[in-house]
C-alpha cells in the first residue's frame, strides 16, 4: 500500500493537470449536451455516456462529429 501511495505522489505532477482537464472537459461537455439537444446522430443519453465515460476522446468525438449544427436545425 505504501508503495502505491509513493507512486501516486511521484506522478502527482502529471495526474493533477490531467484530472483537472478531464473533469473540466467532462462537466463542460455534459452541460453542452444537455443545453443543445440536437445531434447529428445518436441521442442525449448516448452522448452523455460518451462524454462522461470515454476520457478525452469522448468529448472530442462529440464536439467534432456529434454536435448539432450552429443554426439549431435537427439532423
Amino acid at each position: 500500500m505504501n508503495t502505491d501511495l509513493d507512486l501516486l505522489i511521484e506522478y502527482l505532477p502529471f495526474i493533477i493537470p490531467l484530472v483537472l482537464l478531464q473533469v473540466g472537459l467532462a462537466i463542460f461537455s455534459v452541460i453542452h449536451v444537455i443545453r443543445h439537444p440536437h445531434y447529428r446522430f445518436g441521442n442525449q443519453v448516448l452522448w452523455l455516456l460518451i462524454v462522461l465515460f470515454i476520457q478525452f476522446i469522448g468529448p472530442l468525438i462529440y464536439f467534432i462529429a456529434g454536435r448539432g449544427d450552429e443554426d439549431g436545425r435537427i439532423h
Binding site: P17, F28, F63
Partner: peptide, 16 residues
C-alpha cells in the same frame, strides 16, 4: 477550446 485542450493533454502525455 478543443485546441487548448488537446494540445495541453498531448504536452503532458509525452513525458508521462
Amino acid at each position: 477550446l478543443l485546441t487548448l485542450l488537446i494540445f495541453s493533454v498531448l504536452g503532458v502525455m509525452n513525458p508521462f
